[in-house]
Design a protein around this nucleic acid. Structure first.
Length: 475
RNA sequence: GUCCCGUUCGUCUAGGGGUCUAGGACACCGCCCUUUCACGGCGGCAACACGGGUUCAAAUCCCGUACGGGACGCCA
């Protein structure tokens, strides 16, 4: 049997992190088993549908690197097929027309709730003759659910889950305007697409019992179900917008790498022994539904960050240059020049191991991209004191004298200055030097950085820092 | 309210009757390294929700309680 999994997002305008994880699990399972991974857009709700919202989904999938096998289907396009099944069920006496108005249904809901009953609809039209139908009312079609006994869903993650059939109502499969409901559409589409495994959030577990009513009525083979626990926010409830960033786009914009997010999502609610760093290639080898845990998990930003730091460090330098360009432009108004690019490539190893996100990386890379004069931030200003001015002048003189501008000689000079002019404390030399070169008090290893920046520009930056202290010393 | 599901360090998890004085990772706290921050190295803190069973033996199996979550739409 060829495994076929599917990802059926509804176009909400963003890719929720929980949906992304579901997509990941489906993708991995299909690929790990040599099967197929297919996409279906659940767009039967026309009021909410928009092309842009669909785009967002595909962009997210592409960014995550989840490729799929079929031409993505539109559920809405299949509505004629869904309606056909609804009418077949009607003709077979397994479904019936219901003429109740929304107001009547609302009343029933209130009443059943007050009586402590599970099911809202009271099966009013289940055995009623159509001759009693009110004039001018377009009916919905409801399916007949079993009245007695119990139903069982044998779930790969949840185990055997049973429910009393009294909990199941005669739910609507075709709306009064002839548009199929989600419940009908998923079943028909999953069947038509030969889906073998349904891996989804456990907020669908209860729906499964209803969907199975349709499978049974049609005599269709049911797929294997795997209901994964949801991702929660820090407060323990379903991860939603009020918890902060929930969409894939948000994480991309915060400077996370797709491989880091994938690894994090994979480990959230799934585990394999002690393994933490699990790139996709590895995931393909070891992923199995059996590793999915039954309990919901909370999203931990710090852990994501640490994973991101790992993948950032492992990433190719040219790729990183490309990835930080948009951040440099947006946040620092920097366009990488040819000279800057050369320096950045030389210095990338030194900064990527320090960064947690692409935003960090972009900020750190500025030391290689800016030309003096540039402003000094608060941290830099603390070190650009009158006392530091003497030191900087000394550095300037010594470095100017260097013919071969390499980091060993630069270090040698700085250590000398520390001995003679700064009570032997290298920090007293380095911090002003750092402020002068970086414009801030944080930077990669300075001797190497200075070598990469090159003598002319280092001299220029030192001169500007000295001039800056001259003008700001009075206040 | 009704039904369903869950509960191992702060967080993600390993564990599937004895090898558990419960392992790893992130976070946190020390120390070392050191030119800031970070990285790295070493060490530390810290959990089987509770109560009953079953068993020679339970984190692991069963029941109950508590707490948490989810579902109850002509949304998906």
């Amino acid at each position: 049997m060829t495994v076929i999994t599917r990802f059926p997002p509804s176009p909400t305008g963003f890719m929720h992190i929980g949906n992304a994880r579901t997509a990941l699990f489906n993708y991995l399972y299909a690929r790990a088993k040599g099967g197929k991974f297919v996409i279906r857009i659940e767009d039967t709700d026309r009021a909410r549908h928009s092309e842009e919202a669909v785009e967002v989904i595909f962009n997210a999938l592409e960014w995550m690197g989840l490729d799929y096998d079929n031409t993505p289907q539109s559920q809405y396009e299949n509505r004629a097929r869904h309606a056909e099944i609804a009418h077949a069920l009607l003709a077979a006496g397994k479904a019936y027309k219901c003429y109740c108005s929304p107001e009547e249904l609302e009343k029933m809901r209130e009443q059943s709730k007050s009586e402590g009953r599970a099911v809202a609809y009271n099966n009013y039209w289940r055995d009623r003759d159509e001759s009693e139908a009110p004039k001018g009312v377009q009916p919905v079609i409801r399916i007949k659910s079993p009245l007695e006994g119990e139903s069982i869903v044998d779930d790969v993650v949840q185990g055997k889950v049973r429910v009393d059939n009294k909990q199941l109502d005669d739910f609507i499969i075709l709306r009064s305007d002839g548009v199929p409901t989600y419940m009908l559409a998923v079943v028909v589409d999953d069947h038509d697409m030969d889906v073998t495994h349904v891996i989804r959030g456990d907020d669908h577990l209860n729906n499964t019992f209803r969907q199975n009513v349709i499978y049974d009525a049609m005599g269709w083979k049911k797929p294997i179900y795997a209901h994964c626990p949801l991702i929660h926010g820090a407060d323990g409830s379903k991860f939603s917008k009020r918890h902060g960033s929930v969409s894939i786009e948000d994480y991309k914009n915060m400077g996370f790498l797709p491989e880091a997010l994938n690894n994090y999502l994979l480990r959230l609610g799934w585990g394999h022994k002690d393994e933490e760093i699990i790139p996709m290639e590895r995931a393909l080898e070891i992923f199995d539904i059996k590793g999915i845990s039954k309990a919901a998990s909370k999203f931990d930003f710090k852990k994501l960050e640490s994973l991101n730091a790992h993948y950032l460090n492992a990433a190719d330098n040219d790729r990183l240059v490309d990835l930080i360009s948009p951040f440099l432009k947006e946040k620092h108004n920097i366009i990488i020049s040819e000279e800057g690019l050369t320096r950045l490539q030389a210095g990338m190893d030194g900064i990527k191991e320090r960064a947690k996100t692409l935003i960090d990386l972009a900020a750190e890379s500025r030391i290689y991209l800016v030309d003096a004069p540039f402003p000094y931030d608060e941290g830099a200003q603390k070190h650009l004191t009158p006392a530091a001015k003497t030191i900087l002048k000394e550095i300037l003189t010594e470095l100017k004298a260097l013919n071969d501008f390499n980091h060993e000689d630069i270090e040698h000079k700085c250590r000398n200055i520390a001995q003679i002019k700064a009570d032997g404390k290298l920090g007293n030399v380095m911090m002003p030097f750092r402020a002068a070169l970086a414009g801030t008090d944080k930077s990669p290893a300075l001797f190497e950085a200075a070598e990469i920046i090159g003598k002319p520009e280092v001299i220029k930056r030192l001169e500007h820092a000295i001039a800056y202290i001259g003008t700001s010393a009075s206040h």
